[in-house]
């Protein structure tokens, strides 16, 4: 009986912390530039892509937001590639081969980024478990 309550408490902790993080995934700002694409789908794709890449000059801005000339050049490149009908993967590869994983706001899961991707989940899990154990022990006392 006790272990079931413990498991339930842990689950609640995890769910609550997930709620906390969910606010982080806000929508990206569409590019204000005057790029005209043939279809609405292309325009959406273009704007989504711009939001996914980091400008290398103003490092915390996306290519959609940045006013740096480099960002304008890269917007133009992405625009031309969307027009040509290149896939998102192709466009991503174009940028990554030149500027590295750094241009991606969402870094890929590699050996270098294992800690980055796994640690938050481990911390939430570890935190939830220790919190619940603590609560159970207090209840008993």
């Amino acid at each position: 009986m006790r272990s079931i309550t413990l498991a339930k408490n842990i689950l609640v902790c995890i769910l609550l912390s997930m709620l906390l993080f969910s606010a982080g995934f806000a929508a990206t700002t569409p590019s204000s530039d005057v790029y005209t694409l043939p279809t609405a789908a292309d325009t959406t794709r273009f704007n989504t892509l711009l939001g996914q890449f980091r400008c290398l000059v103003c490092q915390n801005e996306s290519l959609a937001d940045s006013n740096a000339t480099l960002a304008a050049d890269l917007r133009q490149q992405i625009y031309e590639r969307v027009l040509q009908g290149q896939s998102d993967t192709d466009i991503r590869r174009y940028l990554v081969t030149r500027y590295g994983d750094y241009v991606l706001f969402e870094p890929p899961f590699t050996l270098n980024t294992t800690a980055l991707w796994i640690l938050p989940f481990l911390l939430v899990l570890g935190g939830s478990i220790s919190l619940c154990i603590l609560i159970q022990r207090r209840k008993k006392a």
Partner: peptide
């Protein structure tokens, strides 16, 4: 134009 610079990954 900075076109070759893009291929070289130049950003500044």
């Amino acid at each position: 134009q900075g076109a070759a610079a893009l291929d070289w990954g130049i950003y500044g």
